[in-house]
Structures are given as C-alpha cells and as structure tokens.
C-alpha cells in the first residue's frame, strides 16, 4: 500500500473531471428551482442537444477543411453549441412552462417530463438512434508525473473539463453577485411577487435562468463529446438524473451547492468504484444522498424554505 498516494491522486483527478460535468448540468436544475420552484426535467435533454450540436459542428468543421486549426474548430463548435442550445433552453421555457405559470405545481412538472420525451425522440428522429462518435481530437497529457513507479496523468481533455468548469463557475458567481441581472435573479428567488411589484421584469429573469442553465449544459455537452467521444439521444437521461442528484445533494436552489454537489458526487462515484467492486458505485453514491438528506433535508448548502411548503 506504499503506492496508495499516487493512486489516490489519479482517482481525485478522475473524480474531479466527472464531477465537473455533473456540476455544469446541476446549475441548470438549481437555478430554475431557485427562481420558480420547479424541477425542469427536460434539462438533461438540453445537455444532450448541446452535445449533439457540438459533435455535429466538430465533424462538419473538421470535415470541411481538414487543415483548420484545432483550437478554431473547438471554439467554433463551442460557440455554435452554446448559441443553439441557449435558443432551445429559451424556447422550452417559452413553449412548455410560461403558459402554465400560476397553475398548480404538478402541471409544469408533467409538462417538463413531456418536453423531455419530446426532445429525446426529436433528436432520435433527426439524428438517428445510433451512437455518434468523435475520434480523440486532443490526445496527450497536460502532465504525467511518475510517483514511485506509478504514473499519475491528467489528459488535456480532462484538464479542459476541470478548468473550463472552474472558470465558468467563477464567472457565474461574479455575475450573479455583481450584475444588475444577477441582483434581479436573487430578488426573484426571494420573492417573485414583490420583485414584480418593484418593476423587475420577472419573465425576463426566468428566461435568463433557462438560458444560463442551457449555456452551461451546452459547454458540458461539448466537453463530454470531446472527452468521451460517444453520444446518443439517450445520454441526457442518466446525466440529468445524476446532475439532479448533485443539485439536491448540494441543496437545490443554491448555486454553490450545485457546484459542491456535482464535485462531491463525482468523487464519491470514483472512489466507490476504486475501492469497491465497480458495480457498487451507484449504490454508494445514492446511499450517500439518502444519508445526507436524512440529516440535512435541505442538502449541504440549502436553506430551509419556510414559504414554499
């Protein structure tokens, strides 16, 4: 067991990159819940659409020129994916949730599930039900350190995932705490009716949260396309469940909570898989969720909600 340390280091890297993606998607769940108190079950599909747009763009750009520099292809794919996915996020809210504003809580929930099934089948019909693959575009490692004969490595794609997530999280935190729109968001999450009375365009704020959630999910989708390299119309389901779990774990409605929850879930899964038979990783991850909710029903960073019963 003298080589435990490098193994732990490698597993932390693995867990961080897995958790980063969860965190990116979890933000979308948590922001929407924070503002309108609704679980947007179609959010996993928004992530899937982001992945599709990203992969299709990478393939198209790569195939069209061949000689186009990789950085250009990737940033092009990222921008297009973000724009298109944001449009989907906005449209979903506009079509499926806004007309139901003010109706009982169950109604938009059912609408969200319907939207989720619709989007899955819509992509399946448009793109086929089969796996789409991207060959490894960014081979190589950011670093590889030999620790007592065990090479610990961080690949470029995983480094990109971790750093992109970190940068986006910092940017989002700053934006929510400093900007005018951020302040409006916080106001809406505290008291939507009062915010409305004070002249905040609450519909615009709600649209904004959907768009932000979609942007982060799109980045997550493109990064997954890049690192995992295999997508199909059904990836949104599992990713959505995991990210939703991460959001609940961290305290749904809390942005830092979603980040923490995502990373924690990623690390838990990875370590469960590392030290127990791999079969048990979901058992451990969801067991942890149950435990945390038993002792902290509002999640790790959530605040007790007195108003919404």
């Amino acid at each position: 067991m003298n080589d435990l340390l490098p193994v732990l280091a490698q597993q932390v890297i693995n867990g961080l990159s897995l958790g980063s993606i969860y965190a990116l998607i979890a933000i979308g769940y948590t922001m929407v819940y924070g503002i309108i108190g609704m679980i947007n079950f179609a959010h996993g599909e928004i992530y899937m659409i982001g992945a599709y747009v990203g992969v299709v763009t990478i393939t198209a750009l790569g195939a069209a020129s061949g000689a186009m520099p990789l950085a250009l292809v990737l940033s092009g794919a990222l921008i297009i994916a973000v724009v298109v996915t944001a449009a989907y996020g906005w449209t979903v809210e506009r079509v499926a949730y806004r007309p139901l504003r003010g109706s009982p809580r169950l109604v938009p929930l059912i609408s969200a599930i319907g939207m989720s099934i619709f989007l899955q089948n819509y992509v399946q019909l448009g793109q086929g039900a089969r796996d789409i693959s991207v060959p490894p575009l960014l081979p190589g490692n950011l670093f590889e350190i030999d620790v007592e004969g065990f090479p610990v490595s961080l690949s470029l794609t995983r480094a990109l995932i971790i750093f992109a997530t970190l940068a986006l999280m910092i940017a989002l935190t700053l934006y929510i705490s400093r900007s005018r729109m951020g302040r409006a968001c916080r106001a809406c999450s505290q008291d939507m009716g009062m915010a409305n009375l004070l002249g905040i365009d609450t519909n615009r704020v709600i649209s904004f949260t959907f768009v932000v959630g979609a942007i982060l999910a799109a980045v997550g989708g493109v990064l997954i396309g890049l690192s995992i390299g295999k997508i199909n119309p059904f990836i949104g389901f599992v990713a959505g469940i995991k990210a939703f779990t991460a959001a609940v774990l961290g305290g749904i409605g809390s942005i830092p909570g979603a980040m923490l929850g995502g990373v924690l879930l990623g690390l838990t899964e990875t370590f469960a898989s590392a030290f127990l038979p791999t079969e048990y990783k979901d058992v451990v991850a969801f067991g942890l969720l149950v435990l945390i909710l038993l002792f902290r029903p509002t999640g790790l960073l959530g605040t007790p909600d007195v108003e919404k019963v």
Partner: peptide, 20 residues
C-alpha cells in the same frame, strides 16, 4: 473480475484500478 454498467461512459476510475 468486475462488472460495469451498460451505458456508462466514464470508466477512468476503473482504468486507474486496473493500472494499480
């Protein structure tokens, strides 16, 4: 001798374990 879940995509933890 271990099983993975069909449909899973991130096997990095398992790979590290195999390496170990």
């Amino acid at each position: 001798f271990e099983g993975i879940s069909k449909g899973d995509t991130d096997f990095s933890a398992l790979i590290t374990k195999l390496k170990t």
